[in-house]
Simulated scan of single mutants.
Amino acid sequence: MIFIQPKDTDAAYHFAAEEFCMSSMGQTQDIFMLWQTDRCAMLGSNQIAQDEIDFDLAKQHNVQIVRRSSGGGTIYTDKGTLLCTRITPFSSGDDAKEIGRTQLAEPIIMALQKMGIHAEIKGRNDMLLEGKKISGLAQRLGKNCLCSHCSLLFDTDLSVLESILTVDESKLKNKGIASVRSRVTNILNHLSEKYDTQTFKALFKEALSEILPFELYSFSQEELASIEKIREEKFANPLWTYRTNHNFTHHSEKRLPLGKVEVYYEVKDSTISSCSIRGDFLSIKPIDELEKHLADTAFDKEALMTRLNEIDLLPYLGGIGAEEFLSILFS
């Protein structure tokens, strides 16, 4: 396994680096990246930016806004946060969720335990410490490789997190919690011996190396140029970050156990001519593939069920099945 620790703190750069690694090395090479960002709000690939972030407060706090390619919800990171990426070869039939757990979440938990930090894996994608969230995992599927990544809240400014993120009240209610702030915690708050983020990073890297032996790797100038091209064209491009829905004639939404799903769709002559599927569900493949699959289907429950059963929904909707999906449209 190769270990990459970029010094850049621009989140758009890191997502570009992930995409570069997936396209050029991920099919045959096991890769681990450890990185940090400046103040940043990271949108899930299927979310609507203005529904998730208070733009005015984000600007006041000098928070960068980026959109990642993985599903899930919006997170906040800063220099008190560590971020981990694991890119592994992936074959048809592999279990992405299991790979994310065994190849990323479990080694992180083991490393933290070596440091005397007794965290645990809980729920669909969370890591908890004394019952509160310190990390959430998201994934995306590339050509013959899988990218799993997560954040680790060490000394993150939780007041900024709470201030700029607009959290769906139904999500909090379903989890039985009063606010996003009450749900998360910093690892630093649970240490008997306090130290700064850079010390934590060094100790974590050392503990991780005992679990996942690795070789250090640095990008060449040519590779850095390729990464910068991806950054400029995609992750630093406002058209990607702030993409909005077209004007659709219909809108349905529902919070399901595996995430919130919103469906915007145009119906012409009793047929879905186009649609846009948004939410914080944990997709690992681009949702536009499913949107295109549903286009030109009769707006009829039976017809749509037949259409949905033609493909594997798991990588698109993160475990939400056809019946659940149709319950949004025909509730």
Rank of each mutant, 00 (worst) to 15 (best):
H118F: 13
F248A: 04
L329Y: 06
Q64P: 07
Y242T: 03
L43F: 04
T271N: 04
D38F: 12
S226G: 12
C84R: 01
V167D: 04
T185Y: 01
Y316L: 12
K122I: 13
G176N: 03
F299A: 06
I134V: 11
M22N: 02
E291G: 05
M1K: 09
G123Q: 05
E169T: 10
L112H: 00
L82F: 07
K133L: 01
Y217T: 06
V184A: 03
A322N: 07
A16Q: 02
M33H: 07
T241D: 10
F204M: 06
S23F: 07
S45N: 06
P238T: 05
K194Y: 05
M25D: 07
Y195M: 13
A202W: 06
A105E: 01
A41R: 01
I117E: 00
F330C: 14
S135F: 00
E324F: 12
K7V: 12
C147N: 09
Q139M: 12
R278G: 01
K122H: 15
L57T: 06
L165F: 12
K171A: 04
N309L: 10
R68N: 00
I99L: 15
F15H: 02
T37S: 11
H149Y: 09
A119R: 00
K285H: 11
A298P: 03
H149D: 04
T85F: 02
K229G: 09
A225K: 13
Y316Q: 03
E52N: 04
F32N: 01
I277R: 02
L104I: 04
L129G: 00
T74I: 02
Q60G: 08
Q103V: 06
D38S: 14
A49F: 03
D51I: 05
A298L: 14
L294M: 14
N245H: 15
Q29L: 09
D8V: 14
E310Q: 12
G71T: 05
T306F: 13
D38Q: 10
C21F: 10
K301P: 09
K143T: 14
E106Q: 15
E228A: 05
G136E: 05
E210S: 10
A96P: 04
L326K: 01
E302S: 14
T166E: 09
M127A: 02
G259L: 03
M110V: 11
A225M: 08
M110H: 14
Q113A: 12
I187S: 01
K79Y: 06
H190N: 09
Q139W: 03
A105C: 14
S274R: 11
K171M: 05
G116V: 09
Q47H: 06
V63G: 00
G93R: 11
L256E: 01
M110A: 15
L137P: 00
I117T: 00
F219L: 05
L34E: 08
L161C: 01
E289I: 13
R278L: 05
P257R: 08
R101D: 09
V63Y: 02
T85C: 08
L165V: 09
Q64H: 12
E193L: 07
